[in-house]
Amino acid sequence: MSVIDVERACVEFDGDHVLENIDLRIEAGEFVALLGPNGSGKSTLVRAILGLQPLEHGRVRLFDEPLGRFSEWSRIALVPQRLPGTNSIPVSVWETVISGRITPRSRFRRVGRDAKATAQLALTEVGLWPRRHDRLDTLSGGQQRRVLIARALATSADLLVLDEPTAGIDAENLTHLVHLLGELHKHGVTVLVVTHELTDIEHLVTRAIVLGEDRTGTIRYDGPPPVPASFADAVHHHDDHPRDQSAAPTGLSPR
């Protein structure tokens, strides 16, 4: 079964093509890394897949349903790169994590014991259960990112989409996070990671997709990792991420 099926997807911003004729099919159980330099359209592609960015042309299907008719949103969890930054009321760590369980289907139900237990487990997994009563904005950037990951884990989704999940996380927690993603993948969760940095998760990744660095976002490489040197160079060409220097393995044939 395909989890994500994108066909000839085009996205324009004020007449500029950001994505051009993207064809992409991700099957259940894959662990996909979406790579590319800044401005290559990685985040736009993910936003288009999730219906957050309208397509100029083309179509998207999620779990074999057209995006417009798709309703099983509880099967998908998104970990954004950062908090939206518009909140002004204190929100606790626990409230943030449990908010991952809110869907229109939960409208007339109380938050059950199972949901709370899952959220507790997720928060424990990222090592922040003792901080559950704290205000989210009092945590460090790396801790906040771990809370967002816990929120996604608390949903028990079949598809996990993570935007730069390893950025800003210290070495100890990074090891734990990578292990956690590996465990989820082992249990059948499909993972799509948008990242500049393949090194930390390369052993988990079953497929790497590199978007082009030219103005029009196109797929330059689609295959197993490691990314061939020529494409790895393209990934890091405009990269300002401090940990990217260590990447660029060589290897398999391009798409």
């Binding site: 936003r47 999730l50 219906g51 957050l52 309703s71 099983e72 949103w73 509880s74 998908i76 969890a77 998104l78 954004p80 908090l83 939206p84 909140n87 009321i89 929100v91 409230e95 943030t96 908010s99 991952g100 809110i102 869907t103 229109p104 289907r105 939960s106 409208r107 929120r151 949903t155």
Partner: peptide, 18 residues
């Protein structure tokens, strides 16, 4: 609860089907 999710993060709320 849906109003809370929207006020927390509109894009995440949308991905949750709200």
């Amino acid at each position: 609860r849906e109003l809370f999710a929207v006020s927390l993060d509109t894009e995440i709320a949308q991905v949750q089907g709200i």
